[in-house]
Amino acid sequence: MTTLRSFAWVPLAAGTMLIATPSSVARTEPGRAGPEIGQAAPAFTLPDTYGKEHALEQYSGKWVVLEWLNYDCPYVRKHYSSGNIPGQQKKWTDQGVIWLAVVSSAPGKQGYFEPAAMDARSAKEGSRATAVLLDPDGTVGHLYDARTTPHMFVIDPQGVLRYMGGIDDVPSARVGDLQRATQLVDQALTELFAGKPVSVTTSRPYGCSVKYES
């Protein structure tokens, strides 16, 4: 009767299997690559305009903001000419936040500059970013699924992604629209620094397409 007794577990085992199968299917469903809120932000290492390497993990213990940048994009111009992004850069780097602007424009495409020219342009635009990182082959841009300039990411001291999306919530290239816009990166950082939950963790990034190598 031993074999028959073990038979008693068949329905239970079958049930367990049935519960287990669908969830594993859902988990392996092909989704778009890219970072997820609440998950570890993808690790990367990129050189800045001085050739110095910046690895995300070296900023463990600090807040990091990633900003996708193309100075010649009208949307980026809106936020630099108005002083909106430089102002936020100053405000938060003063509080110890690492603000990294990433340029994924391919050589020959809009927004790409040689390191020296990039520095000159950053000075002219009044950038207060910690560093401008060069990603001419788009590796890190694709890793973060960066779509537009600007496209923003906020990473906490544990390396977990806490915000991604637009710089604010009014998609336009008009300076005048800044007045009615909520600055979502600033809001997220303010809430995080106050120990509150982030009220908007994702928003649609808006701007010019990132000028990747085609």
């Binding site: 329905p11 079958a14 049930g15 049935l18 519960i19 199968t21 669908p22 299917v25 859902a26």
Partner: peptide, 14 residues
């Protein structure tokens, strides 16, 4: 998906 549908029917039977 089919696997989930089978799971649901299996639970009905159980």
């Amino acid at each position: 998906p089919s696997a989930e549908a089978l799971g649901i029917f299996g639970m009905l039977g159980m």
